[in-house]
């Protein structure tokens, strides 16, 4: 379970002064469901998810994941979270297996549990043919599988995906979306951010639309259609975001 309460994050910029990247965002994600955070570039999606993963600290408000507060117990939060984004790269000089083992050890797994877990994940993700290959020699698809294995090694109850399919070819993107579904089916709490409407329509149980750091609306796809009088998600998105939209270059 993820509960975000009035999450705020502001940054100081020498030229622009204080920038409010996330402004009092509150939402709840439940186990066995996928929460989609939909927003344009610079809307505040990544900052929100980074706060949930405790990579960034909120300037105001807080969130609890599995009952642990992101400010008071960040290490316990991270132990219950698998975080995957296109910015979470692999160590090039480690092999795929070493990469997964490293994160298993950081998550406190003992050696025998780790060995079984790595074997199980490698076999499940069809990684056996390249598990001994260095990460800098892997194809994009192999790297994605290794990243997935890295997030799954400690079997976290919460999965956070920040634009996980950004820049990937269709086949690799499908591997990721299939994996997100598997996580939901396994009863995990899943939150993921994207600006691709089709992904949200296919995957999400609840959708939140974010712009200029504010969560403007949220609900199931059916609820959003009813609320905004549009069938197409893209039309709903434009209708919600347009009054608040400031293009990236304007700032």
């Amino acid at each position: 379970m993820i509960e975000a309460r009035d999450l705020c994050k502001s940054f100081q910029d020498k030229k622009r002064g204080t920038i409010c990247a996330v402004d009092h965002v509150s939402f709840t994600c439940r186990p066995g469901q996928i929460y989609g955070l939909l927003g344009a570039n610079g809307a505040g999606k990544t900052t929100t998810l980074r706060m949930l993963a405790t990579i960034l600290e909120p300037t105001d408000g807080t969130a609890t994941l599995c009952g642990y507060d992101v400010i008071e117990a960040p290490e316990k939060v991270r132990a219950n979270v698998g975080f995957l984004s296109t910015a979470t790269a692999l160590y090039p000089r480690l092999t795929a297996q070493e990469m997964v083992e490293y994160f298993g050890r950081l998550n406190g797994l003992d050696e025998s549990t780790l060995k079984n877990r790595v074997n199980e994940i490698c076999s499940r993700l069809d990684m056996d043919s390249f598990r001994d290959r260095r990460c800098d020699k892997l194809s994009t698809g192999m790297k994605q599988k290794t990243s997935i294995a890295r997030t799954l090694v400690h079997d976290p109850p919460i999965m956070i995906f920040d634009e996980p399919t950004l820049g990937l070819d269709i086949m690799t993107a499908r591997t990721i979306t299939a994996f997100i579904r598997e996580c939901r089916d396994a009863g995990k709490t899943v939150i993921f951010s994207t600006h691709i409407m089709s992904e949200v329509e296919k995957l999400c149980d609840t959708i939140g639309i974010i712009q200029s750091g504010k969560l403007l609306t949220e609900g199931t796809l059916a609820e959003l259609r009813a609320k905004h009088g549009e069938h197409d998600l893209e039309e709903i998105f434009v209708k919600v975001v347009a009054p608040h939209y400031v293009s990236e270059g304007t700032n």
């Binding site: 990579i55 316990k76 991270r78 984004s85 910015a87 979470t88 790269a89 692999l90 994160f103 950081l106």
Partner: peptide, 14 residues
């Protein structure tokens, strides 16, 4: 530069 800083920061190590 390699993009692994965020990866390691998402692990539970202090």
């Amino acid at each position: 530069e390699r993009g692994t800083m965020e990866t390691i920061l998402s692990s539970p190590i202090s």
